[in-house]
Amino acid sequence: MQQQLAQLVAAATQEAAAVATRAELEAFKARVVGPNGSLTQVMKGMATLSKEERPVVGKLINEAKKAVEELISSLLVKVENSEIAAALGAPVDPTLPSPDAPVGSLHPLSRTRERILASFRKLGFVVADGPEVETEWHCFDALNTPADHPARDMQDTLYMPKAFRSADAPRKGEEAILLRTHTSSVQVRTMLSRKPPFRIVAPGRCFRRDAVDATHSANFHQVEGLWIDRDVTLADLRGVLDFFVKETFGADAEIRLRPSFFPFTEPSFEMDLRSPNLGRLSNRWLEIMGCGLVDPKVLELCGLDPNEWSGLAFGLGLERIAMLVHGIDDIRHFYNNDTRFLRQFA
């Protein structure tokens, strides 16, 4: 009996070597452990054994059965493995490059804009926008710009013809329609349409009748801010700008407010920046933006009582900030769209 079982296991092991597919595995299982299988036959013979022989033979049979079951489960793994290999094909070489294009990138001006907006958002400024083609009133008159101010000159500002009608900025009377020279027109529209208090930042494209060179461009971008509330002070202005500069240029950047002149703010300042981390422009005062307290005349022109409301305003050039932050030396790079430039700032 013992010898018979040993032969059976040996035969099964030998046969198993030839099993490669699931069907062959099933046939093999039937031959060994199926109803008429070789092992099944031996187990059936147990009934004829004496009471004394049974435990001994039973133990031998169990051992043989265990060996066959192990054989079958190892065959199952083998068959599954070959099935998986067939389904998946050749193995992957993980060191090959992915054939897919990588993620794209934001334009450095967009990136700079979002960074600036994010810092002002922390101070409760929300983004406002307005049309790029504006009425002369929104761009100049409402900002207390004298009628004969040079900025209104045909030499400096781009105008649309008299017949031009804008759906977004309808003209009143005979006033001219022009390409906005600053995003301050958005401040005007906000003051006219919203009730204070509010804090807005207006990013956007502006235009000047400038020939293109390393520092000039016919269109450029600004981010302007306006905070209208009761009792807005110069200390508030300093607080807002100090926060912005430290967010954008690092905690060791400093600012100074240098008195200046704009028709729409009083007092008016140029804000200078000094930082140790600006390459060859480090550690010297750089003019970054104009700012000031909103001139009472502007509040009045925009329908706000200057005795009740006050405000602060500031405006900066996006290109200038991006050039400083990234050490870019020519404004034209922003508009050339050479991807060797664009992808440097991802």
Binding site: L123, F198, L234, A235, R238, R256, P267
Partner: peptide, 25 residues
């Protein structure tokens, strides 16, 4: 308001401290 500018020009803008912290609306 013009006198405010005159004063701050002579007084010095560096003597104005950064203002109160502000919360969003």
């Amino acid at each position: 308001i013009d006198l405010v500018e005159e004063f701050i020009r002579i007084h010095g803008t560096d003597k104005v401290p950064a203002g109160r912290p502000i919360a969003p609306l």
